[in-house]
Amino acid sequence: MTPALETHDLTVAYHKRPVLYGVDLAVPPGHLVGIMGPNGAGKTTLIKAVMGIVPPVSGWVKIFGEPASRALGRVGYVPQRESVDWDFPVNVMDVVLMGRYGRLGLGRRVGAKEREIARACLEKVGMLPLADRQIANLSGGQQQRVFLARALAQESDLYLMDEPFAGVDATTEAAIVTLLQELKARGKTILVVHHDLTSAQQYFDMLLLVNLRVVAFGDTAEVFTEELLQKTYGGRLTILSKIAQEVKNQG
């Protein structure tokens, strides 16, 4: 079966400093995958490299067996909430409609069909009553739901979500989890950057442990072990990071 996401020797560097080394990955479709690792481990970078937002130094990415640049239409993306300006003059509906823009050609306007889809997506995350709200006047959890609705509107087969649970209230968190399970049940593949070790076992059926490179990837039951977590979060890679620093100094 073609993997939903496949990477080979994916290496990414910021300002000559490598932040992700030789990632080999083959995510089978229809799974809900948690990406975990300490701060600065390259979790967000991995997602951005897959999306082509940061160019990799080496390696390649395939999505459903196609080069990533050609398959981006099948990928939905939920960025970190801090990455956009919430004072921007758009309302909830506008943001969700953006999810449809990829399918509209140059110069084509948004039509009734797009609005209908956007409304359905808002309904799913329980935000339909707030469709006309300016986005600055939303709570953190509500903002996150808007992003999710936008990703739903993209009608993708692969979803990449960067910390959707960061700073949201318990109700929203539960709602998001239900939504993710539902997507999985419909055969979608979802990769979620996640921080909370306590809930990881419960939420995800596969885990990807990252710290500058892939420490482990597999079923949650196999991967969520003391030893592997220690390897991910423990400081055994001092030489690697020291040398990364030196490479940077060498310019």
Binding site: D9, Y21, G22, D24, R213, V214, K231, R236, I239, L240
Partner: peptide, 9 residues
């Protein structure tokens, strides 16, 4: 040995 890379990598 230490960083879990495969030998061919």
């Amino acid at each position: 040995n230490r960083a879990n890379f495969r030998a061919d990598h």
